[in-house]
Amino acid sequence: MKCPYCGNPDTRVIDSRPAEDGSSIRRRRSCDTCGKRFTTYEKVETIPLIVIKKDNNREQYDRGKIEKGILQACYKRPVPAEVIRKTVEQIETEIFNREEKEIPSKVIGEIVMHKLKDLDEVAYVRFASVYREFKDVNTFMEELKSILDKK
């Protein structure tokens, strides 16, 4: 593994253990040249997942899009970064556990909204307003009423 600090191509593993999610290995490494330490994660390579968009275009699954959407929904909300990271991992696990080669973006969006509803109601409404393309204030109010009715 190449050192991210000095570029030395040879580093050594100091410690290996399963990562928190259980699906990857966390390795602490040390560079013999510069002496710095860094962490790497080793994950099983899976068959690429294809996402079917609303317009029927297909693109490769991108975890970053889910992270970005959740981060935007949780902007200035009291949701710790660690909780967001774990939520993204849960969403990704749920997606890959379906063992499908193609998945509609609608299914991914519904999974994200379900997780956000449990995480933070304001973040959920923010995400839903963009995802469901609320056309006017009445649609927005209907969603808010459905949340309030369930309390």
Rank of each mutant, 00 (worst) to 15 (best):
K2L: 01
K43W: 12
Y61Q: 07
C34T: 03
S23C: 08
R58V: 01
L148H: 13
L148P: 02
K65T: 08
K151T: 05
V44M: 14
E102D: 01
E143D: 14
R77Y: 00
S129V: 02
Y124V: 12
E42F: 10
G7E: 02
Y61T: 14
C6I: 10
P48N: 12
L71K: 11
K2T: 02
S105N: 09
K150R: 15
K151E: 12
F38I: 04
A123E: 00
K101T: 03
F38N: 06
E99N: 15
C34I: 05
I147A: 06
P80V: 02
F134R: 14
G64A: 05
V83Y: 00
T93W: 12
S146N: 11
S30T: 10
T87S: 09
V107T: 11
E89F: 15
K86S: 13
G109W: 11
T39R: 14
K65Y: 15
K54S: 11
K135C: 05
G69Q: 00
V122S: 03
G7D: 01
I111R: 04
M1A: 06
I50P: 03
R126W: 01
I70D: 01
G7P: 03
T33M: 04
E99G: 09
K86Y: 12
A123Q: 00
Y61E: 10
K106W: 05
F38P: 09
K135N: 07
I147R: 14
I84D: 06
E133P: 10
P4H: 07
D149N: 03
T87M: 11
A19C: 04
E94I: 03
T11Y: 04
G109E: 03
R126N: 10
E45R: 11
M1D: 03
A81M: 14
P9L: 09
K43N: 04
N57T: 14
F127P: 02
S129I: 04
K68H: 11
D55K: 09
T93D: 13
V13N: 05
Q60L: 09
G22L: 08
L148F: 13
R37C: 04
V112H: 02
T40D: 02
E142G: 12
L148D: 11
N8M: 08
R17I: 06
L116G: 01
D136E: 13
R29V: 08
T40R: 12
V13Q: 09
S24D: 03
Y41R: 05
K150M: 12
Y131R: 05
I108G: 06
N97D: 12
T93G: 10
C31F: 15
V88G: 04
Y61M: 13
S24L: 15
E99A: 13
G35A: 01
T139A: 09
T39C: 06
G109K: 12
V79C: 00
V44Q: 08
